[in-house]
Design a protein around this nucleic acid. Sequence first.
DNA 1: CTTGAAGCTCTAGTGACTAGAGCAATTACA
DNA 2: TGTAATTGCTCTAGTCACTAGAGCTTCAAG
Lengths: 138, 138
Amino acid sequence: MFSIGDLSRRTGVKVPTIRYYEQMGLVAAPERSEGNQRRYSRQELERLAFIRHARDLGFAVEDIRSLIELSAHPEQPCGHADRIAEEQLISVREKIAQLKRLEAELERIATCCNGKTVGDCYVIRALSDHALCADEHG
Amino acid sequence: MFSIGDLSRRTGVKVPTIRYYEQMGLVAAPERSEGNQRRYSRQELERLAFIRHARDLGFAVEDIRSLIELSAHPEQPCGHADRIAEEQLISVREKIAQLKRLEAELERIATCCNGKTVGDCYVIRALSDHALCADEHG
DNA sequence: CTTGAAGCTCTAGTGACTAGAGCAATTACA
DNA sequence: TGTAATTGCTCTAGTCACTAGAGCTTCAAG
């Protein structure tokens, strides 16, 4: 049996976050000690590790809920789980592409500032005048 | 003079967001028509375009507030504006690196699922068992 | 048996908006 | 000039995924 602090240390999920997940129904309400403290089993540790891992990978809490439901029915086809992961992959790729555009523009902005005062600072000018942008964004 | 809707169309910032920026003090409260509707000048249009652009580049509202304050003092050295842009560039690069790690793992997860049912689905297994990860994350 | 860490519940705050209710003003057209 | 559609107004509350703090109780070590 693990206390909520044990669970936190073992999974890297903060204590208030574990309680928040319980409130959201992502993890079930565990047993309690006589003094009303949460006591977790190994199974619950594993579920929390699963959640942690999925959150690290950027899955939304709602997606994680779906994945958990799916894993509770191991006899069903796994197409749905696949689709969730693929959608996540697509959205990660989009974010990367977007961020690379930002990187390019920020590089241009941040490295070209030869002005000495704000009045001729390229950072400010570039943000003021969209025409200075090399590519379209937003 | 522009109505809030004009401003929205010209800058791509949604109407409620413009009002929110006013509340946050990012844009000044504009003149009002006799019937109490907001009326903006070209200067205010330009400031909003600046904000929009900076938000697109991922600057936090607080950073934008700093940049606006800086641009109000064009005689000062621009090192601060530079620093904000450079920090932004660093954080964008970190996000890209992180997302690339996610992409790699999601690719592995989403494309290797040869199972027919959830019970042997790689997506679920990979999320359950961090040991299947090729690299560390989180 | 005491002390200090860890736990409990509850409320409220974060950032950057977004949505909706219930009105008032403006604009386009007849 | 009338009227209907559109746009605007304020205000409150909701979103996501937590995080912080108050004020109390329980637990584990010495």
